[in-house]
Amino acid sequence: MSAEIIFTQHLVNGLLLSGIYGLVAVGLTLIYGVLEIVNFAHGEFYMLGAYLTFIASAWLGLPYYASVILAVLSSAFIALIVERGAIRPIVERSFESKVLSTFAISMILANAVLLLFTATPRTVRTGIAGTIEFAGVFFSVERVVALLTGYLAFLALHMFLQRTRLGKAIRAVAQNRDACYVVGIDLHKMARLTFALGIGLAGLAGALIAPIFSIEPSMGQAVVLKAFAIVIVGGFGSVKGAALAALIVGLGESLVGGYVSATLKDGLAFLIIILVLIIRPQGIFGRATRVL
């Protein structure tokens, strides 16, 4: 086996992973940009997406793709309820209130799922598990599907934000809330929409990861930390930055895990944060050029 093939395989592994990181991080950054809330419950919605997929596929017997769609729609729906009950009342409160509120949501969700499913890891089977070999490099079908779906979702989001009236209004809220009052953009409505959108993306990430990794109620914590790292690296509020940072972290982890040390792998994201905070505190795409 040549070293080049192994290197390529490491790159492919990292690429496939970065798609998932990207989806979680983009939702997080979007919600921050529009609601000015650091959503500590984001990882739990990702976990919820995974469990909803599990319910749809293992209990209701739906095919995997249908389960994914159902999971995304129901996460977005749950997000609407949560926004109404726990986000809207605190949206104009202090930073601490917001932190506490989203933290409470995260605890409630994690414990509700723990209660329903116990901590025993579950597995989602897709029926598309398998692998494609190309010139010695292996592509896991499930991971390729996850990457492509994630990429498509990202493109769709980008088009939505850049081209549509509602998408532009969401960016408008992120750019200048006061000006929204001038032109009559309903901040509550945009907040709700954005929250549902961001959570839907987290749910999608969870649905895509479910068959790749085992799922458990605590799965959100590790991912949300990484997503925070990515969002910080990419610049808070920057969709493009989050996508790029996800790529850096995904590839970096794969190469560090393969050539340096598997133990260091998970610390890499945080090492990158420290470096970015020192060199470019505003993130790669800090506020100056953010997409939102």
């Binding site: 192994i6 794969s254 393969g258 040390s261 598997a262």
Partner: peptide
Amino acid sequence: KDFVEQGAKDFTAVLTKIRGLK
């Protein structure tokens, strides 16, 4: 010789490396 975090889920980096070592 590789150590991974307890509860790790992604072993692709280590496995790819091992694949090269045969």
